[in-house]
Design a protein around this nucleic acid. Sequence first.
RNA 1: GCGCCGGUAGCUCAGCUGGAUAGAGCAACGCCCUUCUAAGGCGUGGGUCGGGGGUUCGAAUCCCUUCCGGCGUACCA
Length: 553
Amino acid sequence: MDYKKKISEAIGSPLVTADDIMTAAEGHGDYALPCFKYARQLRKSPQAIAEDFAAGLGGCDFIERTEVAGGYLNFYLERKAFVRGVMAEDPGRPQLRSSGAGKTACIDYSSINIAKPFHIGHLMSTAIGGSLYRIYKYLGWNVVGINHLGDWGTQFGKLLAAYEEWGDKTKKLTLGDMLDLYVRFTEESERDPALAERGRTEFLRIERGDPDAVRTYEMFKATTLEEVNKVYARLGIEFDSYNGEAFYNDKMQPIIDELEAKGLTEVSDGALVVRLDDYGMPPCLIRRSDGASLYATRDLAAAQYRADTYKFDKCLYVVATQQNLHFRQLFKVLELMGREWAKNLVHVQFGMVSYEGKPLSTRKGHVVFLADVIENTVQKAREIIEEKNPDLPNKDAVAESVGVGAVMFFALGTQRIKDVDFDYDRVLSFDGETAPYLQYTHARCMSVLAKAENRAEGEPDPALLTDDDAYAVVRLLSVFGDVVLDAAEKYEPSVIARYLIDLARSYNRFYIAGRIITDDDALTRARLALTSAVARTIKTGLRLLLTEAPDRM
RNA sequence: GCGCCGGUAGCUCAGCUGGAUAGAGCAACGCCCUUCUAAGGCGUGGGUCGGGGGUUCGAAUCCCUUCCGGCGUACCA
């Protein structure tokens, strides 16, 4: 499996390590060893060194031949043995890898605000976190998905006041109603200071547990979750906990006490802070001068709760890059408190989402609702189906998969740190490097397999998959597990997206180059085995990207 | 001002733990459906890897510096 190691051992020089072996460039075999760095020590030219290494390499069964060119020693693998090894591993199988066995990861993602509609600004955290959830599960981790709800704060007092003032109590409230009420309150309270005051007092009622106020507040929360859960269901997003800000209300005091007891705090302008000057950061605010707690206080309590409850080996916060300083402060404070698990906290940050070059703003009406985007992509998929495959069964289900896939690929197809400007033309493009392309390739594979019926029986002969086109596919199949691992280590689903594009492209070349189903049984069997492995790998990989792979489309 | 992040083809991006001519997709142009799904494949054109220094046999990749853009910078989250 680890050819770099095997090759370096076969060379048998103490100077050459597995890390020195690189993947060869196009047209130079499978692996290569640049010999320049040994020239000084060995007092020979790189070319001569490469020749010496090559000469000493006799009797290596996994290398077909070597080649010395321009100071490089190139290795051509024994393709038959390689193909046999890869195909025997049943590539692309959906079973989980065991690298995470026994370990627990908490993933804080989506973390929506109650009473606010779900727009594309929320898509990134939801998609990246949801994908990481599946990736870590695939790798055998025990995963805890946490939707850290924004369900506390004076805005709920305002909403409550607005609801009591203008709300229609005879009808079931919707998210849209809540948004309208909130906007109206904001507008009218600018003219009417008494109304603003009313918002604060209503929030106090919630805080003090007034039954009527709490009942209405819970109704706001339930209504929001009900609507948002529809979107989550469409996207295949799941959570194990909805403990949000409100949940930590009674869990902050012990942290504050401990901070003070450890002498980490000081009072500055009436506020309680932890100074972080030694670490080049502004102070972390723990308690406001009016006594109220803050974001950081709540997150400290939440981190402690998660450490106690889940005993995590990793805790990921899938939150926009804007909050980078907050998390650096948070992690530092926990470290100063002596929490050894603070090193296992990771801010998985992602770039800004804008629309038409401007930041999204619900208040200013500059928004794109996620449900609308999905509706549009599904509709587009539906149109293409009508055009290209009108007899397809389950058209709606397939259109749904393709539409959702297109949205997911928008969120997961590129490195998460990059800023993105939402672009309808882009999500609605189903050509080239897109989820529909991957789904199409998968469906193409399944179509061939269906047509071949039972001609895939028996062991495939690896010797029949050593031509350049098939071999390129096999090479890609062999690294799928490493790719998933890499994605997990980098917290970067796009690694898998890029890989699947490469795999699909490679397979499509193979597909076009020659026929899979032929008169030759052995050849047909081998090519079907490859087709089947590609289909499984794409399907498994797409699953990790929250995307379904229909058998037909 | 300081901090974090980004700057690669017209557009969107990959490559960034240094290696052989910098790769894709979109857009443009030209090909390939009587045979397994053309949502596909092949080809052509298109690049001062933001600029300048440095380290190295070798730099898009590492270091320094500078410019441009985004975000953050104590009582919002």
